[in-house]
Amino acid sequence: MSLLKIDNIHVYYGAIHAIKGVSFEVNEGEIVTLIGANGAGKSTTLNTIAGLIRPRSGMVSFEGKPLHKVTTAKTVSHGMALCPEGRRIFQQMTVKENLEMGGYSRPAKEIPASIEEMFVRFPRLREREKQIAGTLSGGEQQMLAMARALMSKPKLLMLDEPSMGLAPILVEQIFEIIKELHAAGVTILLVEQNAQMALSIADRAYVLETGTVSMSGNADDLLHNDAVRKAYLGS
């Protein structure tokens, strides 16, 4: 069943037509990835789904309900979480406070147990519990951003460039965690510049090119597609 459905959305930044009629869907239990070059509209698409940007036309629906007119804050209580590009953790708050904020939409009494779950999944965060988040390393900040997004218990987790600026070993660690989350039943929509890694863990993929979907299909097929290899995998 399709959990998230994007139907022909058009997004403008002033006069610039950034997304020109993108449609795709994410089914429950899948990992779907959007790949594409810088400026193709990947982050814009995610931000539109999360309600941070409004589409001029088109539909975003989640579990069959239209979402494109709902505020970002409400999309969270519908079961969507976006882990934004550049992490955007609250630098001046402690690690624990960041996690608490992630659970803002949930009843306060459920929060400590969820924080404990995150500490089990991300042991490094437990060590840093009382530290100011701005002092964490890049990898730790990415983990915190993901844990913070998971604190809302989302049905759909959207990750925007989780590997950005990380050393290869950390990138592998982050992708391991994405696989674990998927195995635990979270549906994932992943935006990545590291197309190789993204395609290797995804079920399906969409290739974005200057605001339109230029190709789509099984991640495996795209991984072996000549055009994709040439354009995005560098071989």
Partner: peptide
């Protein structure tokens, strides 16, 4: 909770919205 929400909004409005903060 409201006080912490204020600190979040003060640091990053967009990220605060993503937490479900009005």
């Amino acid at each position: 909770k409201m006080g912490k929400a204020m600190r979040c909004v003060s640091e990053d409005k967009g990220a605060a919205e993503l937490m479900g903060i009005n």
